[in-house]
Computed example of a mutant assay.
Amino acid sequence: MQCIFFSVSVIQHAFFVSKTYGIIFLPYIFFFFSILKTILVSPLCRNRASRGAVIQSSTSGDWFAEKAIDGNRGLQQLYTGCSSTLNQTNPWWRVDLPHIYRVSRVVVTNRNDCCTEQINGAEIRIGNSLENNGNNNPICAVIPDIPAGESYRYSCGGMEGRYVNLIIPGNMKILTLCEVEVFGKENIAINGKAVQSSTLPYEANKAIDNADLYCTHTETEANPWWRLDLMDLQVIQEVIVTNRIDCCFEQINGAEIRIGNSLENNGNNNPICAVISSIPAGVSSTYTCNGMEGRYVNLFIPGDTKYLTLCEVQVYEEGMMKQAELFHQQ
């Protein structure tokens, strides 16, 4: 995994310096290990499945669904470390993350004893629907095979979803999983607090409720704004804005996305990440902010007799690449 590879390079470089110059320069070593610590807890390196809630279509003996996210890949304790369904039609396993994530990869560990071919043809599905127990969500990957006791990684390219399913389609199938790990980025906006310049009738937090059913709405006024407090300094990779789906979708045109740490002019003087030219009705558009730093994210429409409606605002922090840049600058 890239987070592990980079972490190892940090350690190797630190010891190379100390060995080459015949000294142990403690501040230098401490610097490298502080970067290492930051990398290992970065969004790209967190196994999101480990704190999820799991369920499977059936259970064979004490091979419970939870054993696929217990951190034990089952290689030393096969009979206590893996999940398994009964022999059935279309067996499945599902983890509820329980927030919506942009999933970068899923790592699946196969059993180490007999029957390793039983994983062949399993589908990894990611999405937000529980239709057909989540097994109708989009496919990230189909597993052709995994050798005994091996852990294989499947890239999902940032697919969005709360639920990750593994299902083997067909009759007389058994699904056994010794570990499932899910890596990706969380929408950090849902942990923040939102305010807006005025309210008519829906309040500011409707834009961070992970649902597009209700939207925020200011009164008609000069320079309407909406602000998200992320509660701490963040390094922001991108902001995703969802527009209303009914009338008046053009009213978002010209809105500025601003990111920073100042509350001067209610945060509307912070640096600009992007200006929204337009967003079609009901569409979610992504704006790249290239690692801008800030605690506050504002959306602001300059001008008279304007109002601001937001159906959802998602904010994603920078992953370990920002830490890599910092490392190389030192």
Results as ranks from 00 to 15, higher is better:
Ser104Tyr: 04
Ser285Trp: 00
Ser57Ala: 14
Tyr316Asn: 06
Leu263Met: 14
Arg48Gln: 12
Leu36Gln: 12
Met292Phe: 09
Asp113Thr: 06
Gly61Cys: 14
Glu150Trp: 06
Ile119Ser: 05
Phe183Ser: 04
Arg244Pro: 07
Gly267Asn: 00
Cys215Met: 02
Pro224Asn: 01
Gln234Ala: 08
Leu177Glu: 13
Pro138Lys: 14
Asn265Gln: 03
Ser155Glu: 14
Thr80Ile: 04
Phe327Asp: 01
Ile143Asp: 13
Asn47Tyr: 08
Leu228Lys: 04
Leu36Glu: 06
Ala281Ser: 15
Cys82Met: 02
Ala207Gly: 03
Val313Asn: 03
Ile69His: 01
Tyr163Ile: 07
Val283Gly: 01
Ile188Phe: 08
Gly267Phe: 07
Gln76Ile: 12
Val103Gln: 05
Asn133Gln: 15
Thr286Gly: 01
Asp145Ile: 09
Glu186Gly: 06
Met321Pro: 07
Tyr28Ile: 00
Gly254Ile: 01
Glu325Gly: 11
Pro280Met: 06
Phe300Met: 10
Gly192His: 04
Glu238Gly: 02
Leu86Thr: 05
Leu233Asp: 14
Gly81Tyr: 12
Glu264Ser: 14
Pro27Cys: 11
Asn72Glu: 13
Pro147Asp: 02
Asp304Lys: 10
Asn191Met: 03
Gly282Trp: 10
Ile272Lys: 10
Lys322Asp: 13
Phe33Gly: 00
Gly192Leu: 04
Val180Asp: 09
Ala141Thr: 05
Gly170Asp: 11
Gly282Lys: 07
Thr38Leu: 10
Lys322Gln: 01
Gly267Thr: 06
Ile146Gly: 02
Ala204Asp: 06
Ile259Leu: 00
Pro271Gly: 05
Arg153Ser: 10
Ser278Gly: 12
Ser284Asn: 00
Ile276Thr: 04
Ile24Asp: 08
Cys289Tyr: 03
Val315Cys: 04
Ser104Trp: 12
Val8Met: 15
Met172Arg: 10
Pro91Met: 09
Asn90Cys: 10
Ile276Glu: 03
Gln196His: 09
Ile276Leu: 09
Cys273Gln: 10
Ser285Leu: 07
Phe327Thr: 04
Lys206Thr: 07
Phe64Leu: 10
Val106Cys: 05
Ala222Glu: 13
Leu78Arg: 15
Ile190Thr: 13
Gly267Cys: 01
Cys273Glu: 07
Cys248Ile: 08
Leu326Ser: 05
Phe30Ser: 14
Met321Phe: 14
His217Ile: 05
Pro43Asn: 01
Arg244Cys: 07
Glu219Met: 12
Asn243Val: 08
Leu263Ser: 04
Arg51Cys: 05
Gln118Glu: 04
Ile24Tyr: 10
Gly134Gln: 06
Ile240Gly: 00
Leu177Thr: 12
Arg105Ser: 14
Arg295Leu: 03
Phe15Asp: 10
Glu117Phe: 08
Thr116Gln: 11
Asp145Gln: 09
